[in-house]
Design a protein around this nucleic acid. Structure first.
Lengths: 246, 246
DNA sequence: CGAAGAGTTGAAGACACTCAATGTTTGTGG
DNA sequence: CCACAAACATTGAGTGTCTTCAACTCTTCG
């Protein structure tokens, strides 16, 4: 049962012993299929579970009173949403499946109990928080500093990097299952302008457009255009102070 | 020694026993003065400490290669920067004092040791992460969805709320020690346009302009204009699953 | 076949930017 | 104590990126 992308990813960065691995896998037994378009968490309702994405893509979003929607995070296989999603309801945010998905439903208590007993798992969870935090700050930078074309390229670069990290063996890595409307709500642009940006990228040979998604065809060009540096996705040694015992 | 704004704030939301309180206070013994404009953490260098803001304001920022700067977080008294700031160096981010400050330098190991022993403190730290995360997502929404005027009003509302939470007794709550240039880098606008927005807000009677800062004069108007809802700053019961034992 | 969602394109307009100059305060050194 | 520099703030004019509005096409699905 090592088809657990969270475990796969954590192992690359956090030292986890056999017991930890077993415990983590044991958490994600309650697995469910989610249909495209389903609200995993409804804005306003309470979230009773932590969700681990096993396959498929989801978006965390908020709808403002004037009807505009902002996607605040994209959730890929291996993403844990989240220790923090507990407060989603209070933030009036929701989570929606962008594709058909497999999701493991984890009881918060079970995870917290593990955290009490295992320093390794506590460590790993800190690592997850770290990356999540870094990612959301990278989005702030992207929205605040870059204009449409590099902003889009930067997002694509991030998503490419993340898909490769979570499912290293997948071949269709370079496909992003996001409609132009969803991209617009992610990038803080209008659908119309997203379309124009995508055609520009297509003309430059960096992407190919598909219905319901985008195929990336020249990653290094996208990285350069978006001045992407993915260091924040793989923090080296976390200064969790494990090595320095005293 | 209860002049510790972190403890003050945590107590409002997290149940902490006497031992926890004592331990937390014992952490912040290494207190230092920081001059206005100092880089507490330099982009690129390693951060050896966790910083607890005792007084004053700081900004977490990143400078892009083209010279533009984005402020990704504003740090106020009681803010812990942070369990996560360990990776600031890898993200090429820095932290700068926007005012003269008092900062407690905490050894990461000391905090992690506490987290191992006390569930209450683990709980409290989770609460901190929760709020930090919610805040950065609120910024994403602000940058992605709102135009300059409401965006500015929303930021001001957040900062007003946060100052009141951390230092409830301060009377000069409504003063924001941010230059227009710093506001510009926070809001993703140009200094010129920030100036115009501020004059508009001043004309509407919501703020008064000072050199080196802004005085908020009509909070409820700002909240309305920025459609601010501060629920995310005070998550009620965190579903950390403490109450439901089994 | 009709409807709904996604994508595409054009034209006009607005919000915010750039460039540039000028005013104001603060601090520093002669 | 004055002169000067530096940082911050202000204002105007022109420009451009992105938005808005609107129409139309294409695919998918019931």
């Amino acid at each position: 049962m090592n088809a657990n992308p969270l475990v796969t990813r954590l192992q690359q960065f956090c030292p986890l012993d056999a017991g930890d691995l077993q415990d983590l896998n044991a958490l994600s037994l309650d697995r469910r299929h989610i249909a495209h378009g389903t609200n995993i968490v409804h804005g306003g309702s309470a979230a009773n579970h932590i969700h681990l994405i096993l396959s498929g893509w989801a978006a965390r979003y908020k709808v403002l009173t004037d009807g505009t929607r902002q996607i605040t995070a994209l959730l890929l296989p291996g993403d844990l949403c989240g220790v923090r999603c507990a407060m989603l309801s209070q933030m009036d945010q929701g989570i929606m499946a962008l594709t058909p998905m497999h999701v493991a439903y984890i009881k918060p208590q079970a995870l917290y109990r593990l955290e009490s007993t295992s320093a390794g798992i506590r460590h790993a969870m800190n690592w997850c928080s770290l990356v999540e935090d870094a990612t959301s700050r990278a989005w702030i930078i992207n929205l605040g500093c870059r204009q449409a074309l590099p902003r889009t390229a930067n997002l694509f670069s991030e998503l490419s990097e993340r898909t490769m990290m979570s499912v290293p063996d997948s071949l269709a890595d370079s496909f992003l299952p996001l409609t132009q409307l969803e991209l617009a709500d992610t990038l803080g642009l209008t659908p119309v302008h997203v379309n124009r940006v995508l055609r520009e990228l297509q003309q430059r040979g960096m992407v190919a457009l598909r219905r319901g998604g985008v195929m990336m065809t020249d990653l290094s060009a996208l990285r350069q255009l978006g001045s992407f540096d993915g260091a924040y996705l793989r923090p080296k040694t976390i200064a969790i102070g494990e090595q320095t015992a005293a």
